[in-house]
Write a protein that binds this DNA or RNA. Structure first.
Lengths: 208, 208
DNA sequence: TGTACATCAGTGAACGCGCGTTCACTGATGTAC
DNA sequence: TGTACATCAGTGAACGCGCGTTCACTGATGTAC
């Protein structure tokens, strides 16, 4: 016998997820700071008051969206970093991974890029904390690489932040290029690859 | 005899500037996408309708703010890049320049960081265009350096974008650290310096 | 310098509208026996 | 299995409020003669 949720709880989760999805969709064209509670419930098709059964406020919903969005970025960043040393093929694969992630979760990527410096402080804080945790993980991943021999903890963390920021910049470029021609997208690939390569070269000669 | 504006035009410019200043102040705690016209006129002390004598809409005011804010960033980026080769002292000086600029124009820096990926498209477009122009200038500046011998135009532009992005990231870190202790600020200086150094090293060995 | 008219930055009343939040409610689901 | 009661996700009416925009206006500044 599988342990299923009660009908009530299952329905509640479904509505909650619908609110999150609707909000994410509406945030394609505006910032969280101007998103309205009624706007979200209207998009879902529930009464405005139903919102309060799930979230205290829009900023509260925003924080929940951070968890969801960075949950999806998590494996992407991890895999990308593992792939990102200075060999050409591995850099190319890392860039492809980022491009694929942006294609799969464009709204998540947009949300993080937009709200990272956005107008709602609890959300900014949540993103900052999650990205710091990512950087820590990336640091641990980098530490395993034999190229990291002789590196201090501080330097590894510095490099980890550089990689995380670079990935977000690249993801953001792919997002902007989503409706462009294949040629424009290729140009993004070229620039991102070269920037990643330059960082890899810097990493390689760091201890010279 | 100096050519002064008429009293009428001078007063109009003064009000216009007051609207821009008030908007910038209000944007410390929210995004442009949620900024209200009445909010801005209230802060200035004029009737809501006076707004229309100066701007069509809030996004229109936002575009004007981009010009103003990036006008102030312009000399900073230029000087920083000129200073940013791989010698330790020059990197330190570049970081100091960025820190000084953030101290002098925190609201401008915050506005650009926030609205670069914000919810108002015309403003995003204006920022993207201006940053692309900056990158072109930085490229021209880099081209003059003897270390750029043998570099392709594409590679120089790639490096220019990397520098511009890195400067914005650093500026944004200083902004977040503005109310922190001196120790926290020093940590930002350390990380930013090392990242800049790593990029410089990558640049130095690019043609190996 | 003075006068008569034109310009136009800023005003203030009025409008319709959507907002966030409160409250008592309903009725399906859950639970105790 | 059936019954009686409790829970609670979602409802719908109502509220006061601030919003963006329109319009005809005022009165200081500018201009022509």
């Amino acid at each position: 016998m599988s342990h299923t949720l009660g009908i009530r709880q299952a329905q509640k989760q479904k509505t909650r997820q619908a609110l999150l999805d609707a909000a994410l969709g509406l945030l394609e064209e505006q910032s969280l700071s101007s998103l309205g509670l009624r706007e979200v419930t209207r998009a879902v098709g529930v009464a405005p008051t139903a919102f309060y059964r799930h979230f205290r406020s829009i900023p509260d919903l925003g924080v929940a969206l951070v968890e969801e969005a960075l949950g999806s970025l998590h494996p992407m960043i991890r895999t990308t970093v593992t792939a990102a040393d200075n060999s050409e093929e591995r850099i190319a694969r890392a860039i492809e991974l980022i491009a694929g992630h942006v294609d799969a979760f464009p709204a998540h990527v947009r949300f993080i890029a937009r709200e990272r410096h956005g107008g709602v402080q609890p959300v900014r804080d949540a993103i900052r904390d999650q990205l710091a945790r990512f950087a820590e993980e990336v640091k641990d991943e980098l530490a395993k690489d034999r190229e990291s021999a002789g590196w201090s903890e501080d330097d590894l963390l510095m490099l980890a932040h550089l990689y995380v920021d670079q990935m977000l910049i690249t993801a953001s470029l792919f997002l902007e290029a989503m409706e462009d021609t294949e040629e424009d997208r290729e140009r993004v690939v070229q620039v991102a690859s070269r920037q990643m390569r330059l960082i890899s070269i810097g990493r390689h000669h760091w201890l010279d």
